[in-house]
Design a protein around this nucleic acid. Structure first.
Lengths: 249, 249
DNA sequence: TAAGATTTGTTCGTATGTATC
DNA sequence: GGATACATACGAACAAATCTT
C-alpha cells in the first residue's frame, strides 16, 4: 500500500506502537497495570518527555488510562462507546453526510435489529423501553419539549440497539442515534410540527414493544421498517443538513 | 465541588480541547496552518512539553499533522479512512464480534449499496471492478493464492462501497471488509476449499457488474443479497472467530 | 553541492501536584 | 498529619529534519 510513502515515524509513535503490541501479545485486559514511567524510560532508553508523549497517543485512543498518586500509574483501558462515537464522528466531520444518508442506513439496519432482539428481552429491558416511551406519550406543548421528546425517542432506539447480541450492529445504530441527537441539539431539527406523523411514530413504537414482548420477529421488523420510513418522511422537508462539527469528548 | 463528578482534566487535555474548539469556530479546513509551538507556548502560557503532549493527543485522533523544518509546523488534518478504521477497531477489540455478526450487517447493507450505485458508475469505476474480478477468475492452486483471492474479493466490495454517494454507508461496508481482510491474514480463514460455493460467488460478482453497468438496481440488490448469503454459508463451518487484536495504524 | 535558517523533535534536571497509607 | 509513590509540569539546551539560497 503506502509503504512507499512511509515516512520516518517519531519516537513517541514507535513507543506507542510497541506498547500496543506488547499489550496484545500478553493478552492484557482492561484494568491491567502497565509499566510505570520510570520503567518505560529504562526499558526503551528514552527520555521522560518522549515516553509521556507516547502515553498521550495511547490515551487519546482510549487504550490506556492513567492515575496519579500511590497505586497510580497507567492501565489498559477499555475504549468506551462514547469515545468511539467521538473518534468516528471526527472522521465524518469533513465528509458530507446528509440526514437522508443516515436514514438510508437506519432503514437497512434498525428493522434487522428489532427482529433479532424480539423475544430475547428481559422484563427489565422491556420496562426500560416503556419508561422511555412514557416520556413522550403526550404531544409536546412547545418547541423545547418537542426537542426533548425527539431526543428521548432516539434514546429508545439506542437502548434497543444495545440490547442485542450483535455488538457491531448495535454500535452502528447507536452511532447514528448519537449523531441525530447532536444535530437535534445544535440545529433545532423538527421545529415544524406534524402531529399526524408524530402520532403515527408513537403508535409504531408502542406496537413495536408489544411485538418484542411476544417475540414476533417478523412483526417487529415490519413495524420498525414502517417507523423508519415515517421518520424519514418527517425529515424530507428539512434541508439536507450535513454533519459539520467535532463532537465533545 | 466543581461539576458532576467531573475529574480535573490534565493541562494537555484542556489545551487539546481548546485547539479543537478553535479550529471548529474558525472553520479551518484540512491543510490549514495551526500556530507553531512557540506561539502556543506563549498563548497558553504553558511549557513546551505540555503543548507537545496536547498536539500528540490531537495527532492520535488524526486531527492534526506536523512537519519539521522551515515551512513546517502543525496543520489541520483530514482523518483518513484507514485511521478511522483502526480507531474503531480498537473499540471492538474487547467486544465479542463474531463472523456471523459481521455477515448479519453485511447482508443488511451491501445489497442496499449495490442498488444505490447501479447506473451511477463511471466507465473507469466499472473498469476497476472488472480488473479486481480478473485477479480471481481462475481457481486458486494453493492456500496462499486462495487467501490472496479472498482478499481481492473483499477489495471488490470495499471499492464498490467507496463509489457510492453515501459516505456513512460506504464507511460501514468498508470497515467490515477491512476487518474480514485482517482476519484472513491473521487467522487463515478459508483454508478449506469449497469449489462449488467459490464458483457461485464469482458468478455473482460478474453478474453484479453487468447489472450495475446497465443500471438495474433491483437486480443488483438481489444478486448482492444472494452473494452475501452464499458467503455467509461459506463461513458457517468455521469457528465463530472473534475479533481480538489491535489493528495496525 | 553546501551552508544557513527555521521549525519540530528529544533530553535532562528539577520542582510540583495528588492520591494512598 | 506526615511519609510515600506516582504522574504532572517547567525550562534550558541540544538534535534532527527540511526548506531556501
Amino acid at each position: 500500500m503506502n509503504e512507499t510513502t512511509s515516512r520516518q515515524r517519531s519516537r513517541p509513535e514507535r513507543v506507542a506502537e510497541a506498547i500496543k503490541d506488547w499489550v496484545v501479545e500478553n493478552g492484557l485486559l482492561p484494568g491491567d497495570r502497565l509499566p510505570g514511567e520510570a520503567e518505560l524510560i529504562a526499558r526503551f532508553a528514552m527520555s521522560k518527555g518522549t515516553i509521556r508523549e507516547a502515553m498521550r497517543l495511547l490515551q487519546a485512543q482510549g487504550l490506556v488510562v492513567t492515575k496519579t498518586g500511590p497505586r497510580g500509574g497507567s492501565f489498559v483501558g477499555k475504549v468506551s462507546k462514547d469515545r468511539a462515537h467521538a473518534l468516528l464522528a471526527n472522521y465524518f466531520y469533513f465528509q458530507n453526510v446528509s440526514i437522508d444518508d443516515i436514514y438510508q442506513v437506519r432503514i437497512a439496519l434498525e428493522p434487522e435489529n428489532a427482529a433479532a432482539v424480539a423475544g430475547h428481552l428481559s422484563a427489565d429491558q422491556i420496562g426500560e423501553l416503556e419508561e422511555i416511551l412514557a416520556r413522550y406519550a403526550a404531544p409536546a406543548r412547545d418547541a423545547d419539549e418537542e426537542r426533548a421528546q425527539h431526543i428521548d425517542s432516539l434514546r429508545f432506539h439506542a437502548r434497543l440497539a444495545s440490547f442485542g447480541q450483535n455488538a457491531l450492529l448495535g454500535f452502528f445504530i447507536g452511532f447514528m442515534a448519537q449523531i441525530l441527537t447532536d444535530l437535534t441539539v445544535y440545529k433545532r431539527l423538527y421545529s415544524e410540527r406534524n402531529l399526524e406523523l408524530w402520532r403515527r411514530g408513537l403508535r409504531h413504537q408502542t406496537d413495536l414493544v408489544a411485538a418484542l414482548r411476544r417475540g414476533d420477529a417478523d412483526a417487529a421488523r415490519s413495524i420498525m421498517r414502517d417507523h423508519m420510513e415515517t421518520a424519514r418522511r418527517m425529515m424530507e422537508d428539512h434541508e439536507a443538513v450535513v454533519m459539520k462539527r467535532f463532537m465533545a469528548e
